[in-house]
Design a protein around this nucleic acid. Structure first.
Length: 432
RNA sequence: GGACAGAUGGUCGAGCGGUUUAAGGCGCCGGUCUUGAAAACCGGAGAGGGGGAAACUCCUCCGCGAGUUCGAAUCUCGCUCUGUCCGCCA
């Protein structure tokens, strides 16, 4: 399942050095992520591997020496038979040593590839979402003098969201948008990209929605989370987020330090199998197999990671503010963060029908975790190293539609269009 | 999908079994010269890893993966990608 296993073999070794130096704190970090302690296992495999490498290289060195000696002898017309006999003898050991080395390397890399990123020190430690910390609340949830309806009732009553036909076409967890709500999706996409490109300096990128396995490994979906994504019959993957396409643009690159930071924004459809989500959010368009999203990705100097995370989160928040939606910012706990993240803010938008906040954006600092898997490096005269990568939704469009329908619904079943979107809706001020 | 051609360092490009520790040009960095610059001349410069306190030393990498050989950028096989032409197609 690992794409080109040896492809990343040496990149992660730097990790091992750190683990070797401080196994206790590494295991502690693993525990905080609900992962088993693996430091001892790693250190052992690494030691064995290096021992084999030492022997292998000695043998190779001797082989090269003899080969040159034979070349020199032949050139001078001397007899090389004795040397050739020795060469045959010596080289017999090499394939065996190579096999041993490869076996240890594969085990080690398989293990390393399955280990989640280490949380930053300022991330709250906890098993799950109950340990998340609310950083701030922004905006006031709207007051209704009637019982606010859920988005699927509003959309269906308007004849603008169609779940029944979606089942016929594709199955459950798909949604068909019609007329002004379909238009709303397009308006949101344009609006979000405009804000991010004009106000925050992101470059707009049009990305492929199908990617190869190396990409999925680079951003951390593979090898552990293959079941969460869809794979095509020719071995490609439908992106679960444009983060995959965007972040992998710097894969296998050595970027001049002066070119950092790199900021990219892309719209994409996102595809998720939602394996394991059976029964959750079955109604409506909260949890679909396919949804629209505008994604932000930053590639920065490793020292600028946290600063960039604040900036990116602010960019995503700006969308919610401009749309006039109430939200809160949650700092995720160690147990609730994604595999590749070392610090994550979730933006949760107010959903009136549920009388609660629901996730609409997730902004994560991945540090050098993805960069190491991708061999994404930077360099200038004085220093070099792996870059830091960040990604954040800015925002999930499907859920933004949900939030607008619910927060801007009127007693008569119509829905007001937020001021900033009216130009993007060709002047339409109201749905219905 | 079919046919042919190709893949070499930042880039262009030589090499087609043994001084290749990858020629040479361009670009880049440092120096000499110059008031400064250019030109000219001299020098430097890839990535990853092992050992070592260090000086240093060794290994791997010429698209990727196998193979032949004492020795592979060079020969063989498979794959991927790129180009050109044909077919199909939004």
């Amino acid at each position: 399942m690992l794409p080109q296993t040896l492809f990343f073999i040496f990149r992660v070794m730097q990790d091992v050095k750190r683990i070797r130096e401080n196994p206790e704190s590494f295991d502690k970090a693993m525990e905080s992520r609900n992962f088993r302690p693996v430091a001892a296992e790693i250190i052992d495999l690494d030691a064995k591997r290096r021992e084999v490498i030492a022997r292998l290289q000695q043998t190779q060195s001797r082989r090269n020496e003899i080969a040159s000696a034979i070349g020199a002898a032949k050139k001078n017309g001397e007899d090389a038979a004795a040397l050739e006999r020795e060469a045959v003898e010596i080289k017999q050991a090499i394939p065996q040593l190579e096999k041993e080395e490869a076996a240890f390397a594969e085990k080690l890399n398989e293990l390393l590839a399955s280990i989640p990123n280490i949380p930053l020190a300022n991330v709250p430690v906890g098993r799950d979402e109950t340990a998340n910390v609310c950083v701030r609340k922004v905006g006031e949830p709207p007051k209704f003098d009637f019982q606010p309806k859920p988005h699927y009732e509003i959309g269906e009553a308007l004849g603008m969201i169609d779940f029944a036909d979606a089942v016929k076409i594709s199955g459950s967890r798909f949604t068909i948008l019609r007329s002004q709500v379909a238009k709303l999706e397009r308006a949101l996409k344009d609006f979000m990209l405009d804000v991010h490109t004009k106000e925050f300096g992101y470059e707009e990128i049009g990305v492929p929605f199908l990617v190869n396995s190396e990409c999925m490994f680079g951003t951390g979906q593979l090898p552990k989370f293959a079941a969460d994504s869809f794979q095509t019959t020719d071995g490609r993957w439908l992106i679960p987020t444009a983060e995959v396409s965007l972040t992998n643009m710097v894969r296998d690159m050595i970027i001049p330090a002066a070119k950092l930071p790199i900021r990219m924004a892309a719209y994409s459809a996102c595809f998720r199998s939602e394996a394991g989500a059976a029964g959750r959010d079955n109604r409506g368009m909260i949890r679909n197999h396919q949804f629209s999203k505008v994604e932000l990705v930053s590639v920065v100097h490793p020292k600028k990671g946290e600063e960039e995370l604040e900036r990116m989160t602010k960019a995503a928040e700006t969308i919610l503010k401009k749309l006039g939606l109430a939200y809160r910012v949650m700092l995720l706990s160690t147990g609730d963060m994604g595999f590749s993240a070392e610090k994550t803010y979730d933006l949760e938008v107010w959903i009136p029908s549920e009388n609660t906040y629901r996730e609409i954006s997730s902004c994560s600092l991945c540090g050098q975790f993805q960069a190491r898997r991708m061999a994404a490096r930077y360099k200038d005269e004085s220093e070099k190293g792996f870059v830091s990568t960040l990604n954040g939704s800015g925002l999930a469009i499907g859920r933004t539609i949900v939030a607008i329908l619910e927060n801007y619904q009127l007693a008569n079943g119509k829905v007001t269009i937020p001021e900033v979107l009216i130009p993007y809706m060709n002047g339409v001020k109201e749905l219905g």
